[in-house]
């Protein structure tokens, strides 16, 4: 994989799909919160200021428009990643032992970070958020079409079960995004490579330690 020349981090297709996904996620989560507020599952609502759509009808329009962006972009990412072997190369192998070792190292703040090469904790989190991404779409389809896609709804305990699955997948994704953004703030050198595709110079890395 590695060869001489300027160090590469993220391939172009990863960078493009990453930023389209970021936009789609903002639209889906912002409008989804407004839809949630119309009939809250739990004893709280999301502050209006951080929701999208203005009213339920507007939020639904955003949600059902942006879902195409999310799904098409997600499919492109997954298919391209599987066909090129990118997903396997960057996210596997993964074993409980390495996850444990890297978790301990991370908690002791002794974990190396190399842009474009993931430690076991990162692999686990990225695989986890990919799984949540698939599940949030499937549960969303079940909530949208509980009659036509009855088998999908049945897998999730029916319409009301699918609503809960959809909500908890969103919660998991939001938790991931918070950690993800916190780490980018902690290690700013990881930000530019997601745009340029070039790994940061080693000294930049040290400056951040």
């Amino acid at each position: 994989m590695s060869k001489a020349g300027p160090p590469k981090s993220h391939p172009l297709f990863v960078r493009i799909t990453h930023w389209i996904n970021a936009l789609a996620m903002i639209l889906m989560i912002g409008s989804g919160w407004r839809i949630y507020n119309a009939s809250p599952l739990f004893d709280f609502t999301f502050p209006r200021e951080i929701t999208l759509g203005g009213w339920l009808g507007g939020a639904l329009q955003w949600h059902f428009a942006a879902m195409w962006l999310l799904v098409i972009n997600g499919l492109v990412y997954l298919i391209y990643g599987l066909v090129t072997g990118h997903l396997r190369a960057s996210l596997l192998p993964l074993s409980p032992r390495t996850v444990w070792a890297d978790t301990v190292a991370a908690l002791r703040l002794k974990l190396d970070h190399t842009t474009g090469r993931y430690n076991a904790v990162q692999k686990l989190l990225y695989l986890g958020v990919l799984a949540l991404g698939v599940l949030v779409v499937l549960s969303g389809l079940a909530v949208w079409k509980p009659v036509q896609l009855w088998w999908l709804a049945a897998l999730m305990g029916g319409y009301e079960g699918a609503r809960l699955v959809h909500f908890f997948c969103m919660s998991g994704i939001v938790a991931f995004v918070i950690v993800h953004l916190a780490l980018v703030f902690l290690v700013p050198a990881t930000f530019l490579p997601m745009i340029t595709g070039r790994a940061p110079a080693p000294k930049t890395n040290e400056a951040n330690e």
């Binding site: 903002i26 912002g30 507007g58």
Partner: peptide
């Protein structure tokens, strides 16, 4: 209120930069 909310729709969208 819902109708007014709808009119606020654009401003809210702006606030998100969307």
């Amino acid at each position: 209120l819902k109708r007014i909310e709808r009119r606020l729709f654009l401003r809210q969208s702006l606030s998100l930069g969307a």
